[in-house]
């Protein structure tokens, strides 16, 4: 009668990881890029930085995981408001958006100089 749900751990896992990134790394990133002296984060320094594959991976993670966090949180917030969308259409729309954003992020990061 009850069946183990095999997809939710995947979405919840991304939600959970995204939460860590959004809460911990996004503020650090904002402080570093937004508030450090302009010389420290000048154009040429930044270009040199993003050439590093590890920084590319960091930027990709920084964008992608919080998107999944947001998608899951939004889905649950709408559920709390009583919105029932049959057949998981809401999930397709929200997680689909996160997947799309992830692909865009991957493309941009990959084509950076």
């Amino acid at each position: 009668m009850y069946e183990v749900n095999k997809t939710e751990p995947f979405w919840w896992g991304l939600f959970s990881l995204g939460g860590v990134v959004a809460a911990l790394f996004v503020p650090i990133h904002i402080i570093m890029v937004g508030f450090l002296s302009a010389e420290a984060v000048g154009y040429h320094q930044m270009v040199a930085l993003v050439g590093n594959p590890l920084i590319k991976l960091y930027l990709f993670t920084l964008v992608s995981l919080p998107l999944f966090h947001a998608a899951h949180r939004l889905r649950f917030a709408l559920k709390d408001l009583g919105l029932k969308v049959a057949g998981g259409l809401l999930g397709v729309f929200l997680y689909g958006g996160a997947v799309f954003g992830t692909m865009v992020a991957a493309y941009i990061v990959a084509t950076l100089p």
Partner: peptide
Amino acid sequence: QVIASSEGIW
């Protein structure tokens, strides 16, 4: 089996 179902924790 019960709590990891759609009607459970998720």
